[in-house]
Design a protein around this nucleic acid. Structure first.
Lengths: 194, 194
DNA sequence: CTTCTTTATGCAACTTGTTGCACAAGGCGC
DNA sequence: GCGCCTTGTGCAACAAGTTGCATAAAGAAG
């Protein structure tokens, strides 16, 4: 499980409350590890119980509805450092569009082209967003180690979007070609291979 | 949820038993949608109950330990066709290595370089495997619609591995550079930016 | 014929992630 | 003061995925 480590990283970057973490996950960390506020609160509770983090002493004892900030304890930092070097195999992707393309091979491509075009637009928008972040946050040189590593992660996001855009363009062309072939079939009859 | 549709696709390609499906998932479909035999058996039960598939009548009434083959019914095929055209947004990736790189920004890169190299080797091996499949199954032209779509899916796998290999090479170089910088610091003292 | 292995199906418990909602405190408008 | 919105924490139920194990039949090994 990686969520606790994502939370420890975020808290080391800056001590925060549950809701603040949720917002930060929505922005930066969530681009490659998303989490809802429920998951985050649950995990914060576990981390506090296990002694990896602790609540910062606030003006009054926090009850329900009161902000509660956390900071990482040395034990939590050690766990995170150990996790960074841990051996863990990459997991295969899980993408429904690939699955749907395969399904289209047996039930037909009806409606798939529109969905491919829609995904293409979404990935192009995401790429533009990443590029804007890159220009804003990593414009000139003279960066710290943490900055260079964050930039590296961002470049993974950028390259990944580029991969999707390239592949989706191929897919769109292929689907258009199949459609043209199918239209020809209705005029001339199916080819011998069908 | 996509697993039932993955199973319907596999069963349309060829009626199978639970264990056969598991093996086929391990080979081809599992490259982008993996599933354990438990998930598959559970889902087969649900699909049979909902009338999307049915057990093929075998030599005797199958009990526990006896092979039980399924085929897709028209209702299941219709559901699958509707799913192919469904609007569904792409989900962001979840990759622990990216997360660990980010964590390394706050706790140090100790041990990460070895893990990056290991992943690089794994992705190179996976790429070689995909390329072998491509040559074996999609060598010459004259392909059916289903074949062309399967090839398209395989090319996504190939391009994705290429993306990882390219990015991991960049990451390895960056980590080596950071390590060299840190080594220099121990001799000359940290730079003013630290 | 008994035991062991392989093939095959499946239950139960657990972990992880999602969805919907409840509840508390504080600020704002009137 | 009273209603309402925002901020903030959290429970409960569900859905999806994982792990470990139980069970049954069939064939091979002795």
């Amino acid at each position: 499980m990686s969520l606790p480590y994502a939370i420890l990283t975020a808290l080391l970057e800056k001590p925060s409350s549950g809701l603040e973490l949720t917002r930060r996950f929505d922005k930066s960390i969530g681009y490659f590890w998303s989490a809802t506020h429920q998951q985050i609160y649950r995990e914060l509770g576990k981390l506090e119980e296990s002694g990896a983090i602790r609540a910062l002493p606030g003006p009054r004892q926090p009850t329900r509805g009161q902000k509660k900030e956390y900071e990482v304890l040395p034990a939590g930092r050690d766990e995170l450092a150990a996790w960074v070097a841990r051996i863990e195999d990459p997991k295969p992707i899980r993408d429904t569009l690939l699955l749907r393309l395969r399904a289209a091979g047996v039930v037909g491509t009806e409606g798939l082209e529109a969905e491919v075009r829609r995904h293409l637009a979404l990935h192009r928008a995401q790429l533009a967003e990443y590029r804007a972040i890159e220009e804003r946050d990593f414009g000139e040189g003279g960066k710290s180690e943490a900055d260079r590593l964050r930039h590296l992660v961002l470049r993974a996001g950028i390259d990944l979007e580029r991969f999707w855009i390239g592949w989706l363009e191929t897919a769109r062309a292929e689907l258009a070609d199949l459609r043209a072939g199918a239209a020809a079939d209705t005029r001339t009859g199916p080819p011998a291979t069908a």
